[in-house]
């Protein structure tokens, strides 16, 4: 009898651990280099952590409208890098980005930001046609172009993805198929392979976590 009670209790204990663990809200990491700085606050030295942050930017959208950091202010956004004539991974990425678009197109807190890495060909007019052929309406999914060096720079230094000219590659440009999840304060919270449906499922799960995260969580 006593043994039964012990067994029963330990079972309940185990169940609590399992259930309890699954109820702990998952928190997303802050990616990129962190810096610590010492600050004087109220006459005291305080060590503060500065997280990697996407800097200010200015590109031109498919509607020939300036898109800057103001456009994504207070919103979660997903960035990627592509070009409209890319024969390799971009169509896969666009197929997956379309899934995210379909799910979140009516959510005012979410923006999709696709950067062209072939701005010479991908003028706003080309992007506009590409976008409309993909069936995209409204403002949720912006395709931007601009100064190539600036796009490559923000891709490599800020979004931490690779993008570079490579004449040996089909299409002449080598780039990663990453989708970068950026929070309301322009911190990178996740990087996902945008060519793999299962990874994009993970991204959408993480977007839900971020949506529930308070924006006052200012780091």
């Amino acid at each position: 009898m006593k043994r039964n009670i012990v067994q029963c209790l330990s079972l309940i204990f185990l169940l609590n651990i399992v259930l309890g663990c699954s109820q702990v809200p998952k928190e997303l990491p802050y990616l990129g280099n962190k810096e610590t700085v010492e600050k004087m606050i109220d006459g005291k030295m305080v060590v503060d952590t500065i997280y990697h942050k996407i800097p200010d930017f200015e590109f031109i959208s498919q509607d020939s409208v300036k898109i800057t950091q103001e456009f994504v202010k207070g919103k979660i956004y997903i960035a990627d890098f592509f070009f409209t004539t890319c024969p390799t991974i971009c169509p896969k990425m666009k197929t997956q980005m379309l899934r995210i678009y379909e799910k979140y197109k009516d959510n005012p807190n979410i923006i999709l930001l696709s950067h062209s890495i072939d701005p010479r060909h991908d003028t706003p007019a080309v992007l506009k046609e590409f976008r409309s052929n993909l069936g995209i309406k409204g403002n949720a999914w912006q395709m931007v172009t601009g100064d190539k060096a600036k796009i490559f720079e923000i891709g490599q230094k800020s979004y931490m993805v690779s993008a570079a000219d490579d004449p040996t590659q089909p299409g002449g440009v080598v780039h990663s198929g990453a989708f970068i999840l950026v929070d309301k304060n322009r911190h990178i919270r996740g990087i996902y392979d945008g060519t793999v449906p299962a990874k994009v499922d993970n991204l959408m799960e993480d977007m839900e976590i971020l949506l529930n995260e308070s924006s006052s969580n200012n780091k």
């Binding site: 024969p87 390799t88 991974i89 971009c90 169509p91 896969k92 666009k94 197929t95 379309l98 590409f130 409309s132 052929n133 993909l134 069936g135």
Partner: peptide, 15 residues
Amino acid sequence: ANCHQEKGEGLAGLY
């Protein structure tokens, strides 16, 4: 298949 998709259904008005 990247563009025309694995089941050959294409992609929207693009492919």
